[in-house]
Write a protein that binds this DNA or RNA. Sequence first.
RNA 1: GGGCCCGUAGCUCAGUCGGUUCAGAGUGCCAGCCUGUCAAGCUGGAAGUCGCGGGUUCAAGUCCCGUCGGGCCCGCCA
Length: 597
Amino acid sequence: MATRADWQRTHWCGEVRKADVGGEMTFNGWVRRRRDHGGLIFVDLVDRTGLCQVVFDPSECPDAHATAGGLRGEYVLSVSGVLAARSDETVNPRLETGEVELRARRAEVLNPSETPPFSLTEEDAAADEMIRLRYRYLDLRTPRMQRNLRLRHRAAQAARSYLDAQGFWEVETPMLFRQTPEGARDYLVPSRVNPGHFYALPQSPQIMKQLLMVAGMERYYQLARCLRDEDLRRDRQPEHTQIDMELAFVTREDILTVTEGLFRAIFRETIGYELPDPFPRMTHAEAVAKYGTDKPDTRYGMELTDLGDIAAQCEFRVFASAVQSGGQVKAIAAPGGAQWGRMVMDRITEELQRETRAKGLAWIALLDEGPKSPIAKFFTDEQLRDLIARTGANPGDMVLMVADQPDVVAEALDRLRRKLADRLGLIPEGVFSPLWVLDFPMFAWSEDEGRWDAEHHPFCMPHPDDIDLIESDPGKVRAQAYDVVMNGDELGSGSIRIHRRDIQQRIFSMLGITAEQAEERFGFLLKAFEYGTPPHGGIAPGFDRIVMWLCGEPNIREVMAFPKTQTAQCLMSGAPSMVDDRLLRDLHIKLDLPPEG
RNA sequence: GGGCCCGUAGCUCAGUCGGUUCAGAGUGCCAGCCUGUCAAGCUGGAAGUCGCGGGUUCAAGUCCCGUCGGGCCCGCCA
């Protein structure tokens, strides 16, 4: 039988306390810092749990002291000794282990290290992300990244144990699947044994999880890798993880309830934060009307107010004509913004024009001596009073107004609202504000393609009251689709699915998919639906985004072990790379590259 | 495909109006000294293709154009 080697760990660096004093123990870890006094040498030894000071005293153990003299940063060390209490003057209150230290009797370098290219200690300035990604295995050794990955693990465990307790089965679905035409660009994988044929890596297990409902799994979940060949953002990577869920014999309420429970479990068991019970809700129409977006940040106010009726009657032509031509005039009130002079407002306007389709920005500064505005002269005193009252603005605030078509007004005021809230410091720290956005529209008109598109996806069940509108007024059809939004980020999206063939057919034909095309693309799914499909629905919370919020990180790269850059490359491994011609030949693939330069 | 920001020592950065003090600081690294430090201290040392290419100029880290790399955003992502 194998026995413990004499260098193997008996205790964790970060876990020893005063109660352990007097114990003989062995640490395994990395040398973070060495303080050599000529006589005494102090070494900060670090493992996954934290840091403990090791003392090498030449009078106690010359051999170990000699070894310590050669230690450098990130050497892998095994050290044995007796844990001692520190004297009162030498206690370090900033360390969890600051009341104790290991007095080394034996030290063995398990492996030396090159000098790391950047500092791994908490207090040093963070290295540039480029170099962190090139040496990701070192970056992951920093306290920040160890904490992030530990929290990510805890979140995954919380999700699994909650879903298990709720009767979900974890089922794995294939990474090599059939390419289906909807949605994002696919990553393709050539099949060697089927020349000219390709698998697609799943954008999500959407179709497979619905098949699992047909298959009688009743409640399925999976921490599913999802792959999309689209451009990256701070919260979008080519591969990400969803807590993919699907439930049979349920209504929307069941799914919202179980999802809220999931979020509450995760936030409670990772960071001890209690999310509201239940989550606030609003319809998609309400979200767009009040916030100009389908993922409002509800940590602060500054809601949009409609000034259409007042604007229609005023003398300001831009406002009146916007309303006449079917547009809107809406406003937000920026608390304390009245102090911004014309220069600041000109800059804000210019920025808004550059970043959105808004053509202009009107404003009223509520100064102590009364409202001041370039457009005040176009309003009667009463109109001005009504308008200001409507926005809920107080003295000292700035009212900002945009007039245009509804989508432009929404885009502009959403942008302004977020930007000004940030600038005015209105966004509270440490607050998580979840929200359900319900009743998304079923269809969105695609100007490019000249037809209706599925807003969520084509298997999404329309609202029962709206089924008769599918053909007559598709823009009015609400879907039984819902998003869970938190602090202005979409954290999950789901729907009740269509389980009736006739409705599915009507949706397909609205989307311009013929019966033949549907058969060609989704025939296997539609066939499955003919064999006793239960009513079902699901949701897929984005795991990386959740962990990003738990960690307080600004992007999901900080909570992924090995993320890609904005050009979808791995700076550590050099992926993607060219491959050997022989590999391509085996796959029957010929390159047709654009000319260099 | 487009807009904006960034690139100077291993790392983090400063570098004004283009000019001899413009190749700099801190830290890290190397060497020596040092027995209670914990971002140890003291002394000394090594360390640069100013991302790359071109242009303007008597003179470019600095100005212009291009390009490469990184980031944020728009498009895109049901």
